[in-house]
Lab assay of single mutants.
Amino acid sequence: DRHTIHIGDITIHLEGFSEEELKLAEELIKRGIHLEEVKRILEELYR
């Protein structure tokens, strides 16, 4: 499954994450956390 996060003019595609995980990812990215770090956090929390 493919999910999309929109932040301003930026569109990020993250596959294989639930709606809850994507909301967390979006919040972290909006707070300035680097995408690679966001992915690592999600994997630690949900895998």
Results as ranks from 00 to 15, higher is better:
14 L>I: 09
10 I>L: 13
32 G>H: 04
42 L>K: 00
11 T>K: 06
41 I>S: 01
24 L>K: 04
19 E>H: 12
36 E>F: 05
24 L>N: 03
27 E>G: 06
7 I>M: 11
22 L>H: 09
23 K>C: 01
15 E>I: 15
2 R>S: 14
17 F>L: 07
2 R>K: 15
47 R>P: 15
7 I>S: 11
45 L>R: 01
11 T>L: 09
13 H>P: 04
16 G>V: 12
36 E>H: 07
28 L>R: 00
26 E>V: 14
1 D>A: 00
18 S>T: 13
42 L>Q: 00
20 E>A: 09
20 E>S: 07
8 G>F: 09
6 H>T: 14
39 K>R: 06
29 I>N: 01
46 Y>W: 08
23 K>F: 09
24 L>I: 12
38 V>Y: 01
5 I>Q: 03
29 I>Y: 04
23 K>W: 12
4 T>G: 06
5 I>R: 00
19 E>W: 14
31 R>G: 09
10 I>W: 10
12 I>V: 11
1 D>W: 00
21 E>P: 09
36 E>M: 06
9 D>N: 13
40 R>W: 08
43 E>G: 02
14 L>Y: 04
2 R>L: 13
6 H>W: 09
10 I>V: 13
18 S>I: 05
47 R>C: 15
47 R>F: 15
23 K>H: 12
15 E>C: 13
10 I>G: 07
4 T>M: 04
2 R>W: 12
29 I>S: 02
34 H>D: 14
14 L>P: 01
45 L>F: 06
9 D>Q: 08
40 R>V: 05
38 V>L: 09
35 L>F: 11
29 I>M: 04
16 G>L: 12
8 G>K: 06
1 D>Y: 01
26 E>A: 10
7 I>R: 03
35 L>V: 08
11 T>V: 07
4 T>N: 10
33 I>Q: 03
32 G>M: 07
36 E>K: 04
44 E>G: 01
18 S>P: 07
3 H>W: 14
39 K>T: 06
44 E>P: 00
17 F>C: 08
37 E>Q: 05
30 K>M: 13
33 I>H: 07
42 L>G: 00
38 V>Q: 00
36 E>L: 08
44 E>V: 04
28 L>Y: 05
27 E>M: 12
41 I>Q: 05
45 L>T: 07
13 H>Y: 12
23 K>V: 09
31 R>C: 15
31 R>I: 07
23 K>Q: 12
4 T>K: 01
44 E>T: 01
27 E>D: 09
42 L>R: 00
37 E>L: 09
16 G>K: 05
43 E>V: 04
19 E>Y: 10
5 I>C: 02
29 I>F: 10
26 E>I: 14
9 D>E: 13
37 E>F: 06
19 E>Q: 13
37 E>V: 12
29 I>H: 02
12 I>S: 07
4 T>C: 14
40 R>K: 11
26 E>K: 10
14 L>G: 03
16 G>R: 07
20 E>Y: 08
37 E>I: 08
46 Y>F: 15
40 R>I: 06
34 H>A: 14
30 K>R: 15
29 I>R: 01
30 K>N: 13
29 I>P: 00
33 I>L: 13
15 E>D: 11
9 D>A: 14
45 L>M: 03
19 E>V: 12
36 E>G: 06
10 I>Y: 09
16 G>W: 08
35 L>Y: 08
34 H>S: 12
36 E>Q: 07
3 H>G: 12
22 L>T: 05
15 E>N: 11
27 E>L: 10
19 E>K: 11
21 E>K: 01
6 H>C: 12
39 K>G: 04
20 E>D: 11
17 F>Q: 02
47 R>V: 15
35 L>G: 04
6 H>K: 10
31 R>P: 05
13 H>G: 05
22 L>G: 06
11 T>F: 13
6 H>G: 09
33 I>E: 05
29 I>Q: 01
16 G>S: 06
39 K>V: 15
5 I>W: 01
8 G>P: 05
41 I>H: 02
29 I>E: 01
33 I>M: 11
